[in-house]
Nucleic acid binder design. Structure first.
Lengths: 247, 247
DNA sequence: ACCTGAACACCGTTCAAGT
DNA sequence: ACCTGAACACCGTTCAAGT
């Protein structure tokens, strides 16, 4: 009744309420993901998450080993979705490595676009081992990556190089794309406004006068070609890997 | 005398102490950068920063408009260093655009390697305008980028494409490189250990048995070729841009 | 077995009050 | 003009106590 963050699922659901799933690690993580999708990462606290579940914050500690463990669980759950898509949509083992990397790239991009507020978490949290590279930070996914490329002719050396450049490519393009999507969704978190003149479009109160090129190109810069650029860069990367393998 | 984070500059420096710079936004930001370099981003709180400066936390609010504004100031200060290097080391206006992008790429990489704990901040904070792309998120730097490339023959359309692919490239490669460097420096922040068997190298307690390729390649994966890979990917990107401009 | 009340240490932030 | 004490609302987390 104080913050505006709760109001979604108001009633803590009295004992007789029908569809109340019992508390579990799964349910907690799913609820947290949904919560971050709607309110942004900084809004996620143990106490608010408890309220969302109709329970006190302390109850969560039975299923989740502290806040850091919760974030870890969220990230694991997200990348596990990749594996699910792999099994369900893509049972065909006969496709080439290029088609596989195309599929994988689009699957990760789908994740980033569906959960722009969570992608920075996937991108910046230290993975379980230092040689795991976000966003391809799950052992199962990486094993699958290696297996697929090796069975299509990559040497050990090449597949490691491919893993490195592919993860860097995904991270750079998708983190920037997610950031733009997340900017609208994720709430202010802005430096306290100190009573400046209230321009409606506060975002554009930059003085571009000293930067003529930027000023002239602002419109072009604002155009969204994320999809086409991603495809183009992906193709170029695949060509690069192809030169690898044949040289 | 409780946490182990203070002990660096123990004496709050009595009034007679010699070199005590007066409090200012500059000093606060510099101290914060140094603090994060040593203790990691999550350790930075207004109260601890105050202590580091020999002052109560509330005093900081005279110079800094809240914590978010402090982080903003840190990021601005960091990217401003790029401009400094540009003016000091690189007065030669006759170099080609490729040499300029080489210089810029290495300057940003230098930032990432000197401040691995701060680079994620530069990478993931929403910039002042949605069309600014980290890590090239300063208007002065972007204007310089545009000016240099345009005066070397880039069209408006090409320079915008170049800005997009160049920033994605820097972000992907450098965020991953900084993450590895930061993993050692930045303190635990790990999910509370629940009394598992205490392996000395807790990092390697992953069970790699189900992932034979990963297991076999672990050593190769752990090798550090960040420098060479960065140079290679940079060259490939420059070639790609070259094809742009001449086609 | 599962949840909670009360407590603790620590946050960011405000503001009247001190010098 | 500059700093601080005290206070407020909010955190994460623990643990004995309730059912």
């Amino acid at each position: 009744m104080s913050s505006d963050v709760e109001a979604d699922r108001g009633e803590p659901a009295g004992p007789g309420a029908s569809g109340r799933r019992p508390l579990s690690r799964e349910l907690i993580i799913e609820t947290a993901i949904d919560f971050v999708d709607r309110h942004g990462l900084t809004a996620l606290t143990m106490r608010r998450l408890g309220k969302q579940l109709g329970v006190e914050a302390m109850s969560l500690y039975r299923y989740v080993n502290g806040r850091e463990d919760l974030l870890e669980g969220i990230v694991d759950r997200m990348v596990a979705e990749l594996q699910l898509h792999r099994d369900h949509e893509n049972p065909d083992a006969t496709i080439g490595w290029q088609a596989y990397l195309q599929w994988l790239a689009h699957a990760v991009r789908g994740l980033a676009r569906e959960h722009p507020n969570l992608f920075p978490l996937i991108a910046t949290r230290h993975p379980a081992a230092p040689w795991l590279r976000p966003p391809l930070r799950s052992l199962r996914v990486v094993e699958d990556f290696f297996d697929t490329l090796i069975s299509r002719g990559f040497s050990d050396t090449r597949v490691v190089l491919a893993y490195r450049s592919f993860s860097s490519f995904l991270l750079g393009y998708l983190l920037l794309e997610a950031s733009v999507l997340g900017a609208r969704s994720s709430p202010p978190e802005e430096p306290l406004d100190e009573g400046d003149s209230h321009v409606p479009n506060a975002d554009q109160n930059l003085d571009l006068a000293p930067f003529p090129h930027v000023r002239r190109l602002e419109e072009q810069l604002s155009e969204d070609h994320a999809g086409a650029e991603f495809e183009q860069a992906l193709e170029d990367l695949l060509d690069r890997l192809d030169r690898f393998i044949t040289e």
